[in-house]
Every structure is written in structure tokens, then in C-alpha cells.
Simulated assay, not measured.
Amino acid sequence: MGLTVVAGMLVVVGIDVTAVQLARTQLWDAADSAALDAADRVDEDRVYAEGLHERVPVARAGVAEIAGRHLAEERRPHLVRSWSLGSRTGSPDGESAVVEVVGRVDLPIVGGVAEAFGGGVTVTVVSRARSQVR
């Protein structure tokens, strides 16, 4: 009987961990596409002042705006209860777009029990993108 309970718990934990990993992958996809979208936003003031070099200058303030708009238009994955941009979203060097997405993931089997302890798991992913001139 004890072995059956242990085996059942391993199956439950395995399913929930797999669900969190799948949700993490989906959050990464969303962060990647938002970062790529933001990296395409050219800082026109810098281009006109400095010219266009090897890398496209990214508008620092525009990264969060574009990434936020991108997430708002994207369909949230099934097990992700909520998502938002993290504090690392922006352009640290003016040439790359960094997008941090923080998502709250529901556990499919023990979600009801997890609700009593704050519910779900918080998953954070960071993606970077940069555009080059060829």
C-alpha cells in the first residue's frame, strides 16, 4: 500500500513539473517574440545624429512599450494564469532589447491544494534580441 502511494505521488509530481516546464517554454517563446519585435524598433534620433553602424540602435524607452503591447496582443498559454513584464525589460546598451516575462503558472493536479498556500508557481524568463545591419 505504501509503495502504491509513493508511486502515485511520483506520478502527480512528475505531471505538475512537466506542466510547469511546458509553461516555461511557452513563456520563453512569448519573451523571444517580444524581444525580436522590440529590437526592430529603431532609435531614429540616434540614427540621424550618429548614423547607422553595424548594429541598429534600439530606442531604450520603446522596448517596454513594444514588449508590453506584444504581450497584450499575444494569447496567454493555457496554464499561465497571468503574465507581465519584469523589471529587467529595456535596453541596457542601446543596441539590444531585453525582455523579462514573469508568469504565474497553475499546477494541473495539485492546483487546488496549492491555492491554500498561495497557489501556482511563478516562472521568470529573460530573452535578448539585437538587430544587425548587413
Rank of each mutant, 00 (worst) to 15 (best):
S84P: 00
V99F: 07
H78I: 14
T124D: 09
L22M: 14
A129G: 02
W83L: 12
D29C: 05
R76A: 11
V12C: 11
V123C: 04
R76T: 14
E95I: 05
I109V: 15
G62A: 09
H53T: 15
V133Y: 11
V110C: 14
V123E: 01
A67P: 02
L107V: 08
S91L: 02
A23K: 00
G2V: 09
L3P: 03
A49R: 12
G120M: 01
L85S: 00
A67D: 03
V121H: 08
R69P: 03
H78F: 15
M9P: 00
D106P: 02
L107R: 03
L3V: 13
M9T: 10
G103N: 08
R60S: 06
Y48N: 09
S82T: 13
V63Q: 01
G118M: 06
A35G: 01
G2D: 03
G8C: 12
G111D: 05
I15R: 03
A35N: 01
E95Q: 12
S127A: 13
I66Y: 02
V20P: 01
A116I: 11
R24V: 07
R88C: 01
E50Q: 15
V11K: 05
V47A: 07
E50G: 10
T89Y: 00
G8W: 04
H70N: 13
A72S: 11
R46N: 08
G90F: 02
W28N: 11
M9N: 07
A61T: 13
R55K: 10
S96Y: 07
A59N: 13
V99T: 06
G62Q: 06
A67K: 02
L79K: 06
A116F: 07
A39K: 01
